[in-house]
């Protein structure tokens, strides 16, 4: 059995094709007979299941610890409220109020309370579901509407990562905390972009982020024949390897709109994704 590694598919800009690439790559690897796992960490808007259609086997309720204040023990010193950057706990003269939905579960209020009046209780933020789809181990998170503790749910989804499989993380878009949590610990980050001014701007931000995290990364350009050549020139200038270029294809968009994988709808794409897998494999330096 192969030793596993983790690839995170991320992008600064939304709608560049992260899920398209992640799901098609997962299917192509599975068809090569290798152990592969797809984890949809875009927990605010997971959509990988639309393409992979997994049979779910397990559902977990995901909770985070939030403060519960014992009014008897509290002396109203206010230290908890001064510490909290999210106004999730505030001290008014002689009462302490909590706003659980704003709590990021850092535990600071419990640690700083000199009276030991604050204990932890659990609050549900969403669910994590796991199953299988045509030889692919599948997992995703679904964050409750209004919940802000995205990284905690992503962490729970990633806890299911299989050691000796190729793990593909479908990351949320952007460069904020949920993205950091999703790409953290990956052996390689595949940054998906498109050759437009927006694509370039957000690619630059994403590159800065993964460089800060000291993660190796490569770039995939989707709809490579639209826009201009500035993304290619930027990558060349920065010494960034482009591992995949996919042309803009109406048939690909039609397949996408029906929840059909590109490798099943268009000829030549399965080979393209298997090539991508071999390039990634060589890059990660295993096998």
């Amino acid at each position: 059995m192969t030793r596993g590694f983790t690839i995170a598919v991320a992008s600064g800009k939304g709608g560049t094709g992260k899920t398209t690439i992640a799901t098609n790559l997962a299917c192509s690897i599975a068809r090569m007979g290798e152990a592969v796992q797809y984890l949809d960490c875009d927990v605010e808007e997971p959509n990988g299941h639309i393409f992979l259609k997994p049979d779910m086997e397990e559902t977990q309720d995901v909770t985070i610890g939030v403060p519960e204040v014992d009014a008897e023990e509290c002396n109203g010193c206010g230290k908890c409220g001064e510490l909290c950057q999210y106004s999730a706990i505030i001290c008014l003269k002689d009462t302490v109020m909590t706003f659980e939905q704003l709590c990021h579960s850092c535990g600071g209020c419990m640690a700083i309370c000199p009276q030991g009046a604050i204990s932890e209780k659990q609050r549900s933020i969403g669910t994590a579901e796991f199953g299988r789809s045509n030889g692919i181990y599948f997992g995703h998170g679904k964050l409750n509407i209004g919940a802000v503790q995205t990284p905690a749910l992503i962490k729970q989804v990633k806890r299911k990562a299989i050691d000796n499989a190729v793990v593909i993380i479908d990351a949320p878009p952007g460069t904020s905390c949920p993205v950091i949590e999703a790409v953290k610990g990956s052996d390689l980050v595949l940054l998906v972009t498109e050759p437009t001014p927006f694509g370039l701007n957000d690619l630059e931000l994403a590159v800065e982020t993964v460089r800060e995290l000291k993660l190796p990364f490569v770039v995939a350009i989707n709809r490579c024949d639209i826009g201009d050549d500035r993304v290619v020139r930027y990558c060349r200038r920065e010494g960034i390897e482009i591992v995949l270029e996919m042309p803009n294809d109406r048939l690909a968009a039609e397949a996408y709109s029906r929840g059909i994988n590109i490798i099943d709808a268009l000829p030549g794409y399965e080979e393209k994704f298997q090539q991508l897998y071999r390039r990634i494999n060589a890059k990660v330096g295993i096998k």
Binding site: G81, Y86, S87, A88, I90, L92, K93, F99, L102, V148
Partner: peptide, 15 residues
């Protein structure tokens, strides 16, 4: 400029 908890913080300020 707070992205969350602005109302709570503002209320606390005037309290």
């Amino acid at each position: 400029a707070a992205s969350g908890g602005a109302g709570i913080g503002s209320a606390k300020t005037v309290i």
